[in-house]
């Protein structure tokens, strides 16, 4: 069974030969082909090259189009900054929605309009052509609170929840519509799965998560499903207090960061939920030893049970020793779910 068949079978609850392996790599993938990170973010051919190279070197079961959180915001017209060897950044002090009234006139950008979203969609087309039969092709969208933070400024959005809940909901609705259009084009280009990154969700407590965030995440997940897509949810940071909600969105895969325990997620998520993660990418994967990585991977597997995919808690840091990353991959190679 090849990589793609393995992941699809595992999701469908059918037997697989070994654990699927889907760690997030971006800067490491770029470094592997000696490219500038700026090019990885802006030129889909570089991204595709880097992803295929890293997936083949380590035997990952998938390739992914994520590079930075600013694709959608950039196309909306947000001020962003490019760095030689860092992810593209959104300039929060010049946030697009500094004035809330701007939202009323903000147009959803055409994902095929030649901007940064289009670049991501092109990456999917090229992935499909190059490795589409062997590897899972994963696209990417920002989740509602992550993208709303990018457009409004994260510090400001955090207080908007109290000051102007109606505005927040209007903004989230705008975001969901935009992300659904983006997702649709990615699926049409051949994405098997859509990653949904909603990092800022880890900053809010269960009340705000349930009232403001979850309902819009749910709309996005349901919309992607209706298009025939699958969803991998990833929230960076401490999600301990929102695990129940994350585990009841109906995502095919819930990808957990290291600050929440897989055992807690297993208890709180819907039965049969596939969990992915979640060793600390820095203290274990980057700073540890191959033996430690193996040990922690086994512990993750034990906590998650058989509905498990091997990965780290978040992006594999670019200066991770290859032998450590290899130990993570070997764990998947030698263990059945």
């Amino acid at each position: 069974m090849n990589s793609r068949e393995r992941v699809l079978a595992h999701i469908a609850g059918q037997p697989v030969d070994r654990l699927p392996l889907m760690p997030i790599t971006m800067m490491l993938a770029c470094q592997g082909i000696g490219a500038r990170y700026r090019d990885y973010c802006t030129d889909y051919r570089v991204l595709v090259e880097g992803q295929i190279h890293v997936a083949e070197t380590y035997g990952f079961d998938y390739v992914n189009t994520m590079s930075d959180p600013a694709r959608e915001a950039a196309d909306c017209g947000a001020a962003i900054e490019y760095f030689e060897n860092q992810p593209v950044a959104i300039l929060e002090d010049q946030a697009l929605l500094t004035e809330k009234t701007t939202l009323a006139t903000l147009k959803i950008p055409d994902p095929l309009g030649g901007g940064r979203m289009h670049n991501g969609i092109r990456a999917i087309g090229l992935f499909k052509e190059r490795v589409g039969n062997e590897k899972m092709v994963e696209g990417w969208v920002e989740g509602p609170i992550a993208e709303a933070s990018d457009l409004r400024g994260i510090n400001t959005l955090m207080t908007d929840f109290f000051d102007d809940p109606v505005f927040v909901k209007d903004l989230f609705a705008f975001v969901v519509e935009m992300e659904l259009r983006f997702a649709r084009e990615q699926i049409q280009a051949g994405a098997d799965m859509i990653g949904m990154g909603d990092a800022a969700a880890s900053l809010v407590g269960p009340q705000i998560y349930e009232e403001f965030v979850w309902p819009y995440e749910k709309q996005l997940v349901d919309g992607i499903h209706a298009m025939g897509g699958r969803v991998r949810l990833h929230i960076c940071g401490n999600t301990r207090r929102i695990l129940k909600g994350m585990g009841s969105l109906g995502c095919e895969v819930v990808d957990l960061d290291s600050l929440a325990a897989l055992s807690d997620a297993r208890q709180q998520a819907a039965p049969g939920q596939i969990l992915l993660g979640n060793m600390n990418p820095v203290t274990i994967l980057r700073n540890g030893t191959p033996e430690l990585v193996t040990q922690v991977a086994a512990e993750c597997h034990r906590q998650a049970g058989s509905r498990f995919i091997v990965g780290a808690g978040c992006e594999v840091p670019r200066d991770t020793p290859p032998e450590n990353l290899r130990a993570l991959c070997e764990y998947a190679r030698h263990h059945a779910p």
Partner: peptide, 14 residues
């Protein structure tokens, strides 16, 4: 104690 989160911290600071 995980009773307050970043939004609550920010409005208190304000």
């Amino acid at each position: 104690a995980n009773e307050y989160f970043v939004p609550e911290l920010l409005i208190s600071a304000r």
